[in-house]
Design a binder for these strands. Structure first.
Length: 568
RNA sequence: UGCCCCUUGGUGUAACUGGCAACACGCCUCACUCUGGAUGAGGAGAGUCUAGGUUCGAGCCCUAGAGGGGCAACCA
């Protein structure tokens, strides 16, 4: 991490870190803090995961502990190696490295041994009720469940059945291994939770068809933590009720000084969704162009968009960690992204919606090489580049108004403005087509203002960006906006879902923007601030030297937009 | 009609564990500026879900209630 980054702050003290500090002080675990990040390889990592990654890896880093990466791959139906690779890449990109790399699927043997032991001890049994019967007999949140007819099978019979389940003698659903706890337990999770189920013909992406039975989350998770010697198992709030079975299992399996689970609130971000299920739908139903679509809140999407890992880490810092459901405003994230980029990336001039300007008193064929500062005075970086100036220029249509309101500081008939790094110009004529659309502006320039200032001391209120028509490079600019039209995309009328709030203009492609020639040979993936417009990155997949493509990472704060709205 | 978790400005977090509500984002002013960016200065905005109680003193403790969320997947 660079120490000049204004986003880097001292580590916060959240309630989890307090507990970890406590553990260290009391010597509770007798070892350094050990955490783990346990993704299921069935989708791409998103911002919510980034929060968890920063927490788990951050704690390990801050307290001299360890953080494992463990793939929680206990469901052969949904998991895939491609997700494993993507997840590893994303974590590394975020700036973290793991101590141990483990797979729950490597624990299948151990887990099975534990299962046999539980059966022998009478703590687990094989249930042969149908899925439907199991559900019914579990009761409801307000009524207790009732024991099924197989609950009191002898350990011998259970063991025999379990072994035959493992051997592949039974079809899916014929039997299931359950913990023997209490069908009337007030915590639904504890009503004889399922431990293992048959998936006889499934193909596990790592274990192939070797295993006919697979552990369920509750069975695998805590025990995997215990096997790895994790001290604090951090997870999100919805697993709170699972803590009981977590503790029950590590105890029953005989682990002393086992890990304990701490739950924290998952991240919710305005105008987007952070759920793998929903993100998968966006991908599968073609609402976006894949997991790494720059509109996606996935790590891959943010990376492709141009957001830097520093910004994501800083964001994780600012949102904090608590036990309260929280929905973070998108402005907070955007601020972090700008704050990060402001100090890092060079400035460049790019005209998004070109409007031709002819400098009528500038000699035809003449070219003036001007010097452009790559960074503003308040960014501690230096560098200049040459910017060609000529008789015909492009400026942004947004920077011209024929009949401007009082506070409009840009170009309008008779108004003088400064061209960034160049001369003062004054608009003398507005050329229109038959339909009355402005097609061209005629301006005059003041040769005395080449320095950017007038020798006579006169001031101009506005400075606008521009590009020499003859020298400009054509480029495609992709303007990304929020994916949904409302802060909470799930807040929809009965019968609708989050897809009905998709933002139809979340991507606007500008096929013919004009950018200054200095960027021509910059490497793909270079980031810039297009002055007065926003932060951009050259598109990692699609940009080529022949056809430049840029992604908008985030726009600049726009106080004129706010000002002009007031007039409405 | 169960069990569990949560409740501090618009948003997200703090408050040395009982001592007179802070920080960030956002918003509004003003200043500065060759980016209406950045920066600087200032401001508005909560009396901590409600009602009782304990205490010299409560956001922190107690009681009761309200509101929000999670749990009845052979998902994680």
């Amino acid at each position: 991490m660079s120490d000049t980054n204004p986003n880097d702050t001292a580590p916060r003290r959240d309630f989890i870190r307090e507990l970890v500090i406590d553990d260290i002080a009391t010597g509770r675990f007798g070892r350094a803090p050990a955490t783990r990040f346990p993704p299921e390889p069935n989708g791409f990592l998103h911002m919510g995961h980034a929060k968890s990654i920063c927490l788990n890896f951050g704690i390990a880093r801050e307290f001299g502990g360890t953080c494992n990466l463990r793939f929680d791959d206990t469901n052969p139906l949904t998991e895939d190696m491609k997700y494993v690779e993507a997840i590893k890449r994303d974590i590394r990109w975020l700036g973290f490295d793991w101590d141990g790399e483990y797979f729950a699927s490597d624990y299948f043997e151990k887990l099975y041994e534990i299962a046999e032991r539980l059966v022998e001890q009478g703590k687990a049994y094989v249930d042969s009720q149908s899925e439907e019967e199991i559900r019914t007999n579990r009761g409801t949140v307000t009524t207790p469940g009732i024991p099924g007819p197989y609950r009191d099978r002898s350990p011998e019979e259970n063991l025999d059945l379990l072994r035959r389940m493992k051997a592949g003698e039974f079809a899916d659903g014929a039997h299931v291994l359950r913990a023997k706890i209490d069908l009337a337990h007030p915590n639904m999770i504890m009503r004889d939770p399922l431990l293992m189920r048959i998936r006889r013909d499934a193909h596990h992406y790592r274990r192939g068809t070797e295993w006919k039975i697979y552990p369920l989350y509750d069975f695998a998770h805590g025990l995997s933590d215990a096997i790895e010697g994790i001290t604090r198992s951090l997870c999100t709030l919805e697993f709170k009720d699972s803590r009981d079975i977590y503790d029950w299992l590590v105890e029953a399996a005989g682990y002393n000084n086992p890990p304990t689970q701490i739950e924290f609130a998952r991240l919710e971000l305005d105008y987007t969704v952070l759920s793998k299920r929903k993100l998968l739908r966006l991908v599968n139903e073609g609402h976006v162009n894949g997991w790494d679509d720059p509109r996606m809140p996935t790590i891959a999407g943010l990376r492709r968009r141009g957001v830097r890992p520093e910004a994501i880490r800083a964001f994780a810092d600012t949102i904090g960690v608590a036990r309260k459901d929280a929905r973070v405003e998108i402005a907070s994230f955007e601020h972090t992204v700008r704050n990060d980029l402001n100090m890092e990336v060079p400035r460049v001039l790019c005209v998004l919606n070109p409007l031709k300007v002819v400098i009528t008193n500038y000699p035809e064929g003449q070219v003036d090489m001007l010097e452009g500062q790559n960074y503003p005075h308040d960014v501690p970086k230096t560098g200049t580049r040459e910017v060609p100036f000529s008789r015909e220029l492009w400026v942004d249509r947004d920077d011209f108004m024929e009949d401007p309101p009082k506070k409009f500081y840009r170009l309008s008939p008779g108004r003088e403005v400064r061209l960034r790094f160049a001369y003062f110009i004054t608009c003398t004529d507005v050329i229109k087509d038959a339909d009355g659309n402005v097609t061209e502006l005629h301006c005059t320039y003041d040769p005395e203002t080449r320095s950017g200032n007038a020798p006579d001391g006169r001031k101009v209120q506005g400075t606008i960006h521009w590009v020499s028509a003859q020298h400009a490079l054509d480029c495609e600019v992709r303007l990304y906006d929020r994916l949904f039209t409302q802060p909470d995309p799930d807040d929809v009328p009965e019968g609708e879902d989050f897809l009905s709030t998709l933002n139809p203009t979340s991507l606007v492609v500008i096929p013919n923007a004009k950018i200054e020639p200095s960027v021509a040979s910059d490497p793909i993936g270079s980031r810039y601030q297009f002055e007065r417009t926003g932060y951009f990155m050259s598109e990692p997949e699609d940009s080529t030297p022949e056809k430049l493509v840029f992604n908008r990472i985030v726009s600049l704060r726009d106080s004129w937009a706010k000002e002009s709205k007031k007039g409405i």
